[in-house]
């Protein structure tokens, strides 16, 4: 992938396929490092399945045998000297608290670091495609400032009749994020 924000878009699609209702996208950045954490409350993965998921020759998908999303994200982290970890709990294992946490750690100054890129477009694309899923986005910048978007707050202000993927609402979200980033 050309930007890590595209990996994020791709990894969050897995959470959506796993029928998550809340997906947290948390970025924590210093001058030297970046941590990307994606947390969902979807159906989770069993330990046996999880053990094989990092390896591109395992997937539960039917149209094509090889799942590439997680291996690509893992590679992007590892090639900077960082790492990717996954913890997951299925409904059977943990009926109250099931879901998946994927956390990737990057060294930003490594020459093989992929830039984060247009994370705003990733978020807008996600809300556009899944207006009924909730997203919490937080980006802690190297200067300590926090960029924040929570679709639950948006939903509360909008009421039930206006879907989150209405053009005006997407534009509001885009402008809100751009403003917080100082674009």
């Amino acid at each position: 992938m050309k930007e890590l924000s595209l990996n994020i878009l791709d990894i969050v699609q897995n959470s959506i396929s796993a029928e998550a209702s809340l997906i947290e996208i948390l970025l924590a950045e210093t001058d030297e490092t970046l941590r990307i954490t994606i947390k969902d409350d979807g159906r989770g993965m069993s330990p046996e399945f999880l053990a094989t998921v990092m390896d591109p020759f395992s997937t539960t998908r039917k149209t094509r045998k090889v799942g590439m999303g997680i291996p690509l994200f893992k590679l992007a982290a590892e090639q900077t000297g960082g790492e990717l970890t996954i913890t997951s709990r299925t409904r059977d294992m943990s009926p109250e608290d099931h879901g998946t946490v994927i956390s990737a750690f990057f060294y930003k100054n490594h020459m093989d670091f992929t830039p984060l890129g247009d994370v705003v477009s990733t978020l807008i694309s996600l809300i556009q495609g899944c207006p009924d899923v909730d997203f919490l986005f937080e980006h802690e910048l190297p200067n300590g400032e926090m960029v924040h978007l929570d679709t639950r707050e948006m939903r509360e202000a909008l009421g039930d009749e206006i879907p989150l993927n209405s053009f005006e609402v997407l534009e509001w979200a885009r402008e809100s994020l751009n403003e917080q980033y100082g674009f």
Partner: peptide, 23 residues
């Protein structure tokens, strides 16, 4: 199409272009 292969090939800007042009 927004699977891994689609995203890697440039589906995100295409999606956003459709949202904008339709409007």
């Amino acid at each position: 199409g927004m699977a891994t292969c689609g995203i890697a090939a440039g589906a995100r800007p295409v999606l956003n272009a459709f949202v904008e042009e339709v409007r």
